[in-house]
Structure formats: C-alpha cells, structure tokens
C-alpha cells in the first residue's frame, strides 16, 4: 500500500459535497488535524456502495483533531480531541506541511 501520509502529518479534510454513500462526516470537512495512524488499505465505500468492487484499495487514516479546531465555540477541555477515520482521497496536506517538502 502506498500511503501518502504518515503519523504526525498535518492534513486538512477536503470540502466537497459529492452525492452518494460518503463516510466523511459533514462536520469535519474543511477541518485541520494530524494523522494519528495509518489503519491499512481499504476499498472506497463510495464505490462499494454501488457494487463497484474492482477499485484499488486505498489508505485509511485516523486523523486527530483538537475539539476547539472542530467547533469554534467548544466550551469543554482545551486538550479534548476528536479522532475520525478518513479515506486518503478526502485528505490534502496543509500549507504548513507543503512548505517543508
């Protein structure tokens, strides 16, 4: 599996609204976090949902977000985090990471 990102990489979730069976929650689109781990390679649920099972598996990540970065008015602990599983095609490197490449 060719994983584009590794643990610790800063990423942003793409802002897109494709129709169909999408497993990227609305609330996390456009948010920036850090890759917590690479979960392995899995087939894209957006294809599988329509019976297309011939696609190449792609990397799935757990991305950790600070709650205050997800919800601007988050009123609980400053160190609280939210981990979300996100498929690779939904992630893009943040500007901070691009500048070091």
């Amino acid at each position: 599996m060719n994983a584009r990102f590794g643990p610790g990489d800063a990423v942003r979730v793409r802002v897109a609204y494709p129709p169909g069976h999408v497993r990227t929650p609305y609330y996390i689109r456009g948010r920036e976090g850090v890759v917590e781990r690479v979960c392995g390679a899995f087939r894209n649920p957006e294809e599988l949902a329509y019976g297309r099972s011939d696609g190449q598996p792609m990397a799935l990540y757990r991305v950790r977000f600070l709650q205050r970065d997800v919800w601007p008015d988050y009123a609980e602990g400053g160190g609280d985090t939210l981990d979300v599983e996100i498929y690779e095609h939904w992630l893009e490197p943040t500007a901070a990471r691009e500048s070091t490449e």
């Binding site: 899995f42 160190g79 609280d80 939210l82 979300v84 599983e85 498929y87």
Partner: peptide, 15 residues
C-alpha cells in the same frame, strides 16, 4: 476531573 482530556473516537469507516 478537570485535568482529564476527553478523546472522542468517531467510527466512520472500517475500524
């Protein structure tokens, strides 16, 4: 207690 960090895990995919 206040000094705890709460980590929420959203099972959105295969884990």
């Amino acid at each position: 207690p206040d000094h705890f960090d709460v980590r929420v895990h959203d099972s959105t995919a295969d884990m």
